[in-house]
Structure formats: structure tokens, C-alpha cells
Simulated scan of single mutants.
Amino acid sequence: MHARAVAASTTAVLGTAALLLTFSPARAADSGAGPVVIAHRGASAYAPENTLAAVDKAAELGVEWVENDVQRTKDGELVVLHDDSLQRTTDVEEVFPDRAPWKVKDFTAAEIARLDAGSWFDPAYAGARVPTLEQFVHRVERYDQKLLLELKNPQLYPGIERQTLKVLSNEGWLDREHVRNRLIVQSFGADSVRTVHELKPAVKTGFLGTPPVADLPSYAAFTDQINPSYGSLTADYVDAVHALRGAHGKRLEVFTWTVNDAENARRVDGYGVDGIITNTPDVVQEAVDG
């Protein structure tokens, strides 16, 4: 996640939080509940990001939640990849040397399926492929895990919200059990999050970023989470988010990203966050358990 978070001023945070907290329940930390740990792009410190191997590694580490990124190919297939270019995490330059700048949207699903998405990370993962969304959710389902799905660059892919929901529905991920307990759809695009909420109100949603505290009530109308980068986070901001009820009438939550060390994991845990997104879920889990 590389979007620039919008930091709210300390004065605004303190003032608005003080007003809102009188109307809302205490944050999770006050009840003794620790944050959930989410494997960012799978256990991406230990296996190539957004591959099935990264899901396998997360399962091996006992991680319940997996995060991924969804983009769309030239012929309309949804694939799991973080960047809008294939260049960083595949051998596309070698396989298709004349196709720069190697954007996902300029390649068919069959072409992308030819690429090696593992060797860049470690030769041991040579031959790993860019999975389709269907393949990815099948692997998550194999381990009975939960999915935090990010709609990446939605402005590049008109209608990706409806298409993603259709794939999830076809794969059995929009039934009562999944929707209530095992699925969150998030994005940096507020309009995209709003669209998901309007198309499928039962689905839990998250907005990636740090909106000013004064704007939080407008986000709460269509999302269930505000998910900022950990560098932009303060305890007062978490309190301000928790002071509101989200789109499903429950307390607005905070999942923060991307925390990869014990010190920062303990710091944001102390703020009362509801979830920590991390490349090193074992490190973070040990820190918050301790």
C-alpha cells in the first residue's frame, strides 16, 4: 500500500474525539481484546507476495487473515497483484521484452499466466504464478482463512467493484457465513468503497487512508473501517474513529498497515487498533500476545 495518508491536526483530533466519545462504546483495547493480525499480500516477508505460496506460508504460521490486491487484465480477468505493472514481481521483461511499460491492463490472462512470479523473490519459488482471484480464494478457503480484499487502482478498471462481487458470489464468498465473519473489501478509493456498499450492503468494507477527523462521519455512512498507515496514527485518532458507528451500525474499526516489527506492533496495539496488517505476521502476533 503506497498511497499517501492524509494526517489530521492534533487539535482537530483532540477536539472532535472529545465530543464524539461521549456517545460511543469504549475501544477494543479497553475490553482486553487484542488486534487481529492480517498477513499482508500473504506472508510476504517469507514467500512472494500475492501468490498462492504466500497464502500457504500464512497458513503454516497459523495466520487467520490474509490480505490481497485485485486488478484486471486486458481480457477482463481479475488477477491478484499489487502493482499496476507486472515489471517488479514477474519476469515479464524477459518474456515480453517489447511490451513496456508492462501494465496489467495491457496483457491477457493467458499471457500473465505464463509469467514467473516467484524467482524475483527467491529461486526456491521459481515457477510461482500470478493467481486469478478465483484461484486465490480457493486457496484461502482450503485453510478456512479470512480475506481482506483490496480493490487496487479502481480508477483504471471501471466496474471492478461489481465484477469482484460477482466472482466472490460465484465462489461462494457472499453467503451469510463469509459475509458476516470472513470477508472485508477495502480500497484507497472512497467512491469504490461506497460502490461496494451500495451494490452489496451486507459486505463489510474498509477505507484505506487517514481522513481528517471532521470528515469521519461522512465515511462512516458507507464503510465499517478506517485503515490508516501506522506512521500517520495516534491514539487520539483511533479514539475518534472508534467514537463513530459504521455502515452496519457497529463501532467503526481501525486496521493499520504495514507494521513489520515488534516495537511498532506494541505501539499501535497500545492505541487500541482492531487489526494490524503485516508482512511478518509471526513477529507481530508474538509482540501483541506478549
Rank of each mutant, 00 (worst) to 15 (best):
residue 259 V to F: 10
residue 23 F to L: 10
residue 56 D to N: 11
residue 283 V to Y: 05
residue 109 A to F: 02
residue 108 T to V: 04
residue 151 L to Y: 12
residue 111 E to N: 05
residue 283 V to A: 08
residue 7 A to I: 11
residue 82 H to T: 08
residue 190 A to L: 02
residue 209 G to F: 02
residue 7 A to E: 13
residue 163 Q to N: 02
residue 69 D to C: 09
residue 82 H to C: 13
residue 145 Q to H: 11
residue 26 A to I: 13
residue 64 E to R: 13
residue 262 A to P: 12
residue 195 T to P: 01
residue 46 Y to P: 00
residue 281 P to I: 06
residue 151 L to M: 10
residue 228 P to M: 03
residue 23 F to H: 14
residue 75 D to A: 10
residue 113 A to C: 01
residue 115 L to V: 06
residue 166 K to R: 05
residue 24 S to I: 06
residue 97 P to R: 03
residue 61 L to N: 01
residue 105 K to M: 09
residue 276 I to K: 09
residue 61 L to R: 00
residue 48 P to W: 02
residue 279 N to E: 15
residue 220 A to P: 09
residue 46 Y to W: 14
residue 202 A to V: 05
residue 115 L to F: 04
residue 88 R to T: 15
residue 230 Y to I: 00
residue 140 V to R: 00
residue 183 L to H: 01
residue 259 V to A: 13
residue 34 G to L: 08
residue 25 P to K: 07
residue 161 E to R: 00
residue 42 G to I: 05
residue 95 V to Q: 13
residue 156 L to D: 14
residue 133 L to Q: 02
residue 262 A to V: 02
residue 244 L to C: 12
residue 204 K to S: 08
residue 122 D to W: 08
residue 214 A to F: 10
residue 85 S to E: 13
residue 203 V to A: 04
residue 22 T to M: 07
residue 144 D to F: 01
residue 249 G to M: 05
residue 133 L to Y: 02
residue 132 T to N: 13
residue 98 D to N: 13
residue 238 V to K: 03
residue 125 Y to V: 12
residue 24 S to W: 01
residue 86 L to G: 00
residue 59 A to G: 09
residue 245 R to T: 12
residue 111 E to W: 04
residue 290 G to Q: 14
residue 45 A to E: 15
